[in-house]
């Protein structure tokens, strides 16, 4: 079950859009994706070093032509400042996940080992559950969720990917 919850579609791309920090910008971007029928795998919005500018990191599924259309259509939105796809550039990508897993006393040792291997942290504990925090690549979170699923994942929340180009290049 975990696999179908977490596995990415075969062809996914990370797009970064710098947008004006105005009300309604998210609606414009989300509306564009809905209207043109593009699939969003994940979308995060956050502040940047410039308070007037927000950064959207969007993971989309589709081939090269679809990606090109998405990039161009995004760029047409008046409030979009810059769009970058990371097709040809080395990037670092990270995602944060919180996983509430069932933790029976007999399983606790094993779960803690898994958490250690994946360099996660247990940030809450009850008599029946752990809440685990983990950051890393999408694949790492997928893998960890898969391993934990045998104990019973009660709840999982993932932030979606944020990405940045390696080296001195900026979006």
């Amino acid at each position: 079950m975990a696999a179908s919850l977490t596995r990415r579609a075969p062809q996914t791309h990370v797009i970064t859009a710098l947008v004006g920090n105005h009300p309604g910008v998210l609606a414009r971007v989300a509306g564009l994706f809905a209207r043109r029928g593009y699939n969003i795998e994940s979308l995060t919005v956050s502040v940047t070093e410039d308070p007037d500018v927000s950064r959207m990191t969007i993971v989309v599924a589709g081939d090269q032509l679809v990606l090109e259309q998405i990039t161009k259509q995004l760029h047409k939105l008046i409030e979009v400042i810059r769009v970058a796809d990371y097709v040809d550039a080395p990037t670092v990508e990270r995602e944060l996940g919180l996983i509430k897993v069932r933790a029976e006393p007999k399983d606790r040792g094993e779960i803690m080992q898994i958490v250690e291997v994946f360099r996660g942290r247990i940030i809450d504990m009850s008599d029946r559950t752990f809440v685990i925090e983990v950051t890393g690549s999408v694949e790492k979170l997928d893998k960890m969720a898969e391993l934990l699923s045998s104990y019973g994942i009660r709840e999982m929340v993932r932030t979606g990917v944020i990405a940045m180009a390696r080296g001195s290049r900026t979006a």
Binding site: G24, A27, R28, G31, L32, R35, I78
Partner: peptide
């Protein structure tokens, strides 16, 4: 109306 017309205007303002 700004919400309604997002997909049918080049841009809109409130």
């Amino acid at each position: 109306i700004t919400g309604i017309t997002i997909p049918i205007t080049k841009h809109n303002f409130l």
